[in-house]
């Protein structure tokens, strides 16, 4: 079966992340860029399915030239090839435009059976792109998967939400988004690292995927970021002085926060 994994390069969660003052887009120069961790899990799940069913894993990524490092990581884990949509015109694209671009890029590939994505990125955190891509492709969407099974004809997942766990099934082709509970991703092997640079990566422009430059990017984005501000510094928490009632007070606090 042919599996596409959507991957994104994001600023390292551990580094300080900033938005640029001019247009409120991500200041990519200010932080180390890495393959989003949730995407490593998506790649792992695709590799497991490939190992069980045979087929190929193709990574699809939208991002600036530098995102080839994230692609390389996915290839070194064992993905077979990659499509990198890279175009100046994409700068500032919102979730809808990103989904259109990714869906169009998937459209350039033949006979895709399954698309796997992370449920949300650690930077934008809109959590909307996988569902939008499925909608644009006209495929079933199975989101928030903590477990995935496929026999090559259909796919079944355990979908976990605040409301509980549901088992959801669909015929292929379909799109699945995974949560961080899905698996523990493998480390790339040294052989995988050396093999990665020999694997085919096709770099496509917006025109190559059949879109025009004025459909994407900051200027025509359906949603606009009007303003942004740095997160306020952390404030000191509530202090409870134990005068014999400390335990009760803590439980009251926690239940007030709906944590117990």
């Amino acid at each position: 079966m042919n599996i596409v994994v959507l991957v994104k390069q994001v600023p390292d969660t551990w580094s300080e992340r900033k938005l640029s003052d001019a247009d409120h887009t991500l200041d990519r120069a200010s932080a180390d860029a890495v393959l989003d961790e949730i995407n490593e899990r998506a790649v792992e799940e695709a590799l497991l399915a490939k190992e069980a069913q045979g087929g190929e894993v193709t990574v699809v990524c939208m991002g600036p030239e530098r995102a080839n490092e994230a692609i390389r990581k996915a290839l070194s884990m064992g993905a077979d090839s990659a499509v990198h949509v890279s175009d100046e015109a994409l700068h500032g694209s919102d979730a809808v435009q990103t989904a259109r671009t990714l869906a169009a890029a998937i459209g350039t590939l033949e006979s895709v059976d399954l698309v796997i994505a992370g449920n949300e990125s650690t930077d934008g955190r809109a959590g909307a792109v996988p569902a939008m891509v499925a909608e644009l492709l006209g495929w079933p969407q199975l989101t928030y998967a903590r477990k995935l099974d496929t026999d090559g004809q259909s796919v079944s997942i355990e979908r976990e939400s605040d409301a509980g766990v549901a088992t959801v099934e669909a015929n292929l082709p379909a799109l699945v988004s995974v949560t961080e509970k899905i698996n523990e991703p493998r480390y790339p092997s040294f052989k995988g690292i050396m093999a990665a640079k020999k694997k085919p990566v096709s770099t496509l422009s917006v025109a190559d995927v059949g879109l025009s430059a004025d459909e994407v990017g900051l200027g025509s984005a359906p949603t606009q970021v009007v303003s942004s501000a740095p997160a306020p510094p952390k404030e000191a928490g509530v202090k409870v002085t134990d005068e014999g009632e400390g335990g009760v007070q803590i439980v009251e606090f926690l239940s007030g926060q709906k944590l117990v």
């Binding site: 042919n2 190929e56 193709t58 390389r72 090839s81 990659a82 499509v83 350039t108 590939l109 033949e110 006979s111 895709v112 690292i193 050396m194 640079k197 085919p200 990566v201 096709s202 770099t203």
Partner: peptide, 23 residues
């Protein structure tokens, strides 16, 4: 579902004082 392939830049030669991408 092989996508069209384009050539990728060769890894630059290793300097004795820095590492290449593979390393």
């Amino acid at each position: 579902m092989a996508a069209p392939t384009t050539a990728r830049p060769e890894t630059p030669p290793a300097s004795p004082f820095s590492l290449n991408e593979d390393q």
